[in-house]
Deep mutational scan, measured.
Amino acid sequence: TEKQERAIEYIRRLGYSEEEARRILKKANGNPDLAKEIARRIG
């Protein structure tokens, strides 16, 4: 989804690889607090 793409872009800007960014997002899917934090940061 567009939100996922924005989140991946944001995480990659922090210096993670695409693969790492996707792994972090997968974790965020099972972790509402982390997901909220990422969403808050990407606006």
Results as ranks from 00 to 15, higher is better:
residue 7 A to Y: 04
residue 30 G to R: 03
residue 10 Y to C: 06
residue 42 I to A: 14
residue 6 R to E: 15
residue 12 R to T: 11
residue 2 E to S: 12
residue 17 S to D: 06
residue 11 I to Q: 00
residue 18 E to L: 12
residue 9 E to T: 08
residue 23 R to L: 14
residue 4 Q to A: 12
residue 3 K to C: 09
residue 37 E to H: 09
residue 18 E to H: 08
residue 29 N to M: 10
residue 15 G to S: 02
residue 8 I to Y: 07
residue 12 R to C: 05
residue 15 G to E: 01
residue 26 K to F: 10
residue 29 N to F: 09
residue 12 R to H: 05
residue 20 E to N: 07
residue 34 L to V: 11
residue 19 E to S: 11
residue 27 K to E: 14
residue 33 D to Y: 08
residue 24 I to V: 05
residue 27 K to I: 15
residue 30 G to F: 10
residue 40 R to G: 08
residue 41 R to I: 12
residue 12 R to I: 15
residue 29 N to S: 08
residue 11 I to P: 00
residue 38 I to M: 09
residue 30 G to N: 09
residue 27 K to P: 01
residue 22 R to Q: 08
residue 5 E to T: 09
residue 24 I to Q: 01
residue 26 K to T: 10
residue 22 R to I: 10
residue 39 A to Q: 02
residue 1 T to M: 11
residue 21 A to T: 05
residue 28 A to I: 03
residue 15 G to A: 01
residue 26 K to Y: 10
residue 37 E to C: 10
residue 15 G to H: 03
residue 26 K to I: 12
residue 34 L to K: 08
residue 35 A to F: 03
residue 23 R to N: 13
residue 35 A to N: 01
residue 2 E to N: 11
residue 34 L to R: 09
residue 41 R to A: 14
residue 26 K to N: 10
residue 31 N to V: 05
residue 27 K to M: 15
residue 26 K to W: 12
residue 13 R to V: 07
residue 30 G to A: 04
residue 20 E to G: 07
residue 16 Y to H: 06
residue 41 R to S: 13
residue 12 R to D: 00
residue 17 S to R: 05
residue 2 E to Y: 07
residue 16 Y to R: 03
residue 2 E to M: 10
residue 30 G to C: 07
residue 33 D to M: 07
residue 36 K to T: 06
residue 20 E to Y: 08
residue 4 Q to I: 14
residue 23 R to G: 12
residue 40 R to T: 11
residue 19 E to T: 11
residue 11 I to F: 04
residue 13 R to N: 14
residue 33 D to L: 07
residue 3 K to W: 09
residue 25 L to E: 00
residue 27 K to F: 14
residue 27 K to L: 15
residue 34 L to W: 07
residue 23 R to W: 15
residue 8 I to W: 05
residue 22 R to E: 06
residue 31 N to D: 15
residue 28 A to R: 01
residue 6 R to A: 15
residue 7 A to T: 10
residue 18 E to I: 09
residue 9 E to A: 12
residue 11 I to Y: 02
residue 1 T to W: 13
residue 14 L to P: 00
residue 23 R to A: 14
residue 19 E to K: 10
residue 10 Y to G: 04
residue 31 N to C: 05
residue 20 E to V: 11
residue 35 A to I: 03
residue 38 I to D: 03
residue 12 R to K: 14
residue 29 N to H: 13
residue 43 G to Y: 15
residue 25 L to C: 04
residue 24 I to H: 01
residue 16 Y to K: 03
residue 18 E to T: 08
residue 1 T to E: 11
residue 7 A to K: 02
residue 10 Y to E: 09
residue 6 R to K: 14
residue 43 G to W: 15
residue 33 D to T: 10
residue 18 E to R: 07
residue 5 E to Y: 08
residue 17 S to F: 02
residue 37 E to R: 12
residue 30 G to M: 09
residue 32 P to V: 11
residue 15 G to Y: 01
residue 12 R to M: 14
residue 37 E to Y: 08
residue 3 K to P: 13
residue 5 E to P: 03
residue 3 K to Q: 15
residue 37 E to I: 09
residue 39 A to P: 02
residue 38 I to A: 04
residue 42 I to P: 14
residue 6 R to F: 08
residue 15 G to M: 01
residue 39 A to L: 04
residue 13 R to F: 13
residue 12 R to S: 05
residue 24 I to K: 00
residue 40 R to F: 09
residue 10 Y to H: 06
residue 43 G to N: 15
residue 38 I to H: 04
residue 34 L to S: 04
residue 26 K to H: 11
residue 39 A to V: 05
residue 2 E to G: 09
residue 35 A to S: 03
residue 5 E to C: 08
residue 16 Y to D: 00
residue 10 Y to R: 02
residue 38 I to F: 05
residue 34 L to I: 10
residue 15 G to V: 01
residue 13 R to W: 13
residue 25 L to V: 04
residue 17 S to Q: 04
residue 30 G to Y: 12
residue 14 L to R: 04
residue 13 R to Y: 11
residue 6 R to N: 12
residue 10 Y to V: 05
residue 25 L to S: 01
residue 39 A to R: 02
residue 16 Y to V: 04
residue 27 K to H: 12
residue 8 I to H: 03
residue 12 R to V: 15
residue 8 I to T: 03
residue 34 L to T: 06
residue 23 R to S: 13
residue 21 A to Y: 01
residue 3 K to R: 13
residue 12 R to Y: 05
residue 28 A to S: 05
residue 18 E to Y: 10
residue 21 A to C: 02
residue 38 I to K: 02
residue 33 D to K: 10
residue 31 N to I: 06
residue 36 K to Y: 10
residue 41 R to D: 12
residue 31 N to M: 05
residue 12 R to L: 12
residue 11 I to T: 00
residue 43 G to F: 15
residue 27 K to C: 10
residue 1 T to H: 11
residue 16 Y to T: 01
residue 38 I to R: 04
residue 3 K to H: 13
residue 6 R to Y: 08
residue 7 A to F: 05
residue 34 L to E: 07
residue 5 E to A: 11
residue 32 P to D: 05
residue 7 A to L: 06
residue 28 A to F: 03
residue 36 K to Q: 08
residue 27 K to Y: 14
residue 10 Y to F: 10
residue 5 E to V: 10
residue 2 E to L: 11
residue 33 D to Q: 12
residue 28 A to E: 01
residue 1 T to D: 13
residue 22 R to F: 10
residue 11 I to H: 00
residue 7 A to N: 02
residue 18 E to P: 06
residue 43 G to M: 15
residue 4 Q to N: 08
residue 22 R to H: 11
residue 42 I to R: 06
residue 26 K to C: 08
residue 17 S to M: 04
residue 36 K to R: 10
residue 25 L to I: 06
residue 18 E to N: 07
residue 41 R to W: 10
residue 11 I to D: 00
residue 38 I to G: 01
residue 15 G to R: 01
residue 25 L to H: 01
residue 24 I to R: 00
residue 42 I to K: 08
residue 36 K to L: 14
residue 40 R to K: 13
residue 7 A to C: 07
residue 4 Q to W: 08
residue 18 E to F: 08
residue 20 E to S: 09
residue 18 E to A: 09
residue 19 E to M: 11
residue 22 R to K: 09
residue 42 I to M: 15
residue 37 E to N: 07
residue 16 Y to W: 09
residue 12 R to W: 03
residue 43 G to S: 15
residue 25 L to G: 00
residue 13 R to S: 15
residue 14 L to W: 05
residue 38 I to V: 06
residue 30 G to T: 03
residue 37 E to V: 08
residue 27 K to S: 13
residue 41 R to T: 14
residue 32 P to F: 08
residue 11 I to S: 00
residue 36 K to C: 09
residue 6 R to G: 10
residue 35 A to T: 01
residue 41 R to V: 12
residue 43 G to A: 15
residue 28 A to H: 02
residue 25 L to M: 13
residue 8 I to E: 03
residue 1 T to I: 12
residue 36 K to A: 07
residue 25 L to N: 01
